[in-house]
Amino acid sequence: MSIRGALRLHGALDLGFAGLYAWVGFSVVRGRSMVFDIALGAVVALLAVAGLALLAGARIGRPLGIAASTLLLAFCLVVVALLVAGVAYLRGIYGPLGQGMAFGSVVAAALVIELFGLLPIFQLRLLLRRDVARHLAGG
């Protein structure tokens, strides 16, 4: 795929994921904390702006995309760490939790990585390439 095509694809993915996070966070499992809502709103906004900029092939798209991806990746790592901490807590309380619980935890972690980790990893891999940086700087 050409650099331009790859940037457009990531722009579209950013927009799609921004919509998904907004729908899930503000509608399906709405939080009760205003801090959470503000943080989520900021992530969604940053991702959406980065997506638009990448779609348009704008120079600002690269730093915005890197910032959004770094933020998402950090969020993913924190959530997985909290998940491990939570299951460790239950393991300490209840002893061995059984195969069902272990399987459920792995599925939850996989879901978190799939929802929040894969896109930023691939996007950072793309945006940190020199030829992509040159392409956007030239555009």
Partner: peptide, 17 residues
């Protein structure tokens, strides 16, 4: 494993302890 802390689970059905 779950029976280590809760031996009375023996024979019952469940997803976790």
């Amino acid at each position: 494993g779950p029976l280590q802390e809760q031996p009375d689970l023996l024979g019952s059905y469940g997803f976790s302890s």
